[in-house]
Design a protein around this nucleic acid. Sequence first.
DNA 1: ATAAAAATTGAATGATTATTCAATACAAAA
DNA 2: TTTTGTATTGAATAATCATTCAATTTTTAT
Lengths: 215, 215
Amino acid sequence: MMKALVNKKTTEQASETEISVNHQKLIDATIETIAKRGLADTTIAHVAKRAKVSQGYANFRFKSKDNLLISSLQYLSDEYKKSWQKIFEEKNIDPIDRIIRIVQNDFSSKIANRNKISVWIAFYSEVKFRPSYLTICQRQDEIYSQQMEKLVSEINNITSQKEFTPKEVSETYHSMVDGLWQRILFDPKIYTNEFCKNLVLKYFKSIYVNEDRFA
Amino acid sequence: MMKALVNKKTTEQASETEISVNHQKLIDATIETIAKRGLADTTIAHVAKRAKVSQGYANFRFKSKDNLLISSLQYLSDEYKKSWQKIFEEKNIDPIDRIIRIVQNDFSSKIANRNKISVWIAFYSEVKFRPSYLTICQRQDEIYSQQMEKLVSEINNITSQKEFTPKEVSETYHSMVDGLWQRILFDPKIYTNEFCKNLVLKYFKSIYVNEDRFA
DNA sequence: ATAAAAATTGAATGATTATTCAATACAAAA
DNA sequence: TTTTGTATTGAATAATCATTCAATTTTTAT
């Protein structure tokens, strides 16, 4: 009896740390399904089929569809966070180069592609009605903004630019990125990643007039 | 027989031009329901109840739920368009004042409130999967962008600003608006309409350095 | 006032879909 | 091998919802 209890606990721990293959397969399949069919048309049956497990299992593994969706959003959020976190942290790189890398990342094909964007917007559209979605998105934004403001204030110090506060620049950039992502979804012919990236760099150019690297 | 035909035609014409009360009641109810419950949870039954007609009637009147949703998006789009169309057309007003009015309009409480925004984003999120949604949104954007570019080029002429093309300024502005609307939904405490408006005006200030009206 | 036509109802239908769970396959331990 | 526990299946269930339509109310024309 004692042994059984201990065993059970070990198993639980294992499944928490070493993320099971099926767990990840299902999350990937969920994101792919939302990208291909839209959130409204994403059923457990579709996801399970794509992940090549039974419908019953998908539900069993995540307790509920809701839970599967939340886990998928969390995964998407973590993936994005990882991509910018390390750029912000490279303290030995010039801050202007660092911000350029942030822009490059935000419009890299890995991040800003129509599939990923459509999934983000699908979740955004439900944020007002699902507190758990809101929490995940807000947490991400908060840290990003905070790091961005710090980076901008470093640049402001170097360039002795006084007209625009770090907060203003950070918020403007952030909203531009969100807006441009949306537009990539609408009209990818015009809004190529390159076009968007250059538009944002041009914005920085308007703030930091003497800095040629933004041109 | 002849008379009957004529009568019928008159009735049809009437119901097309003088939009029936129920028609508009249902569209309003649809927008309200999406705002309150989200698109995923918007059923004909909820809409009908809010519009105070029977569920069967709602479906009969619009042929299908799909059709009702498209009509609602079209209405929203038209309403927004009307609000900016007349500002662009006021040719006797100084272009800088005109662009300031455009900004004021885009962040007026009538346009940029959480209810309206959540409905917009709900439709945006389905744009990739519903060609009819895409068409409505694209048509709107195209005309807006076109007018905006024209306005910016007028301002560029006056200010002899050469660094930033009308297209660039217009696209940047447009994406900022979309991004900020999204952020109003996430965190209305920080992103008040006033805050957003000032952020955008500050952007224009960075382009048109000598123009005090943007400050 | 009456008949004919149109508008509106609401209950029934059928399709879709999340969730459950008994049955089966699989793996590990004895 | 046999036993025991876990992972996985897939068919059944129950709920939700768009759509239909026969019946009823309201409006219009005579």
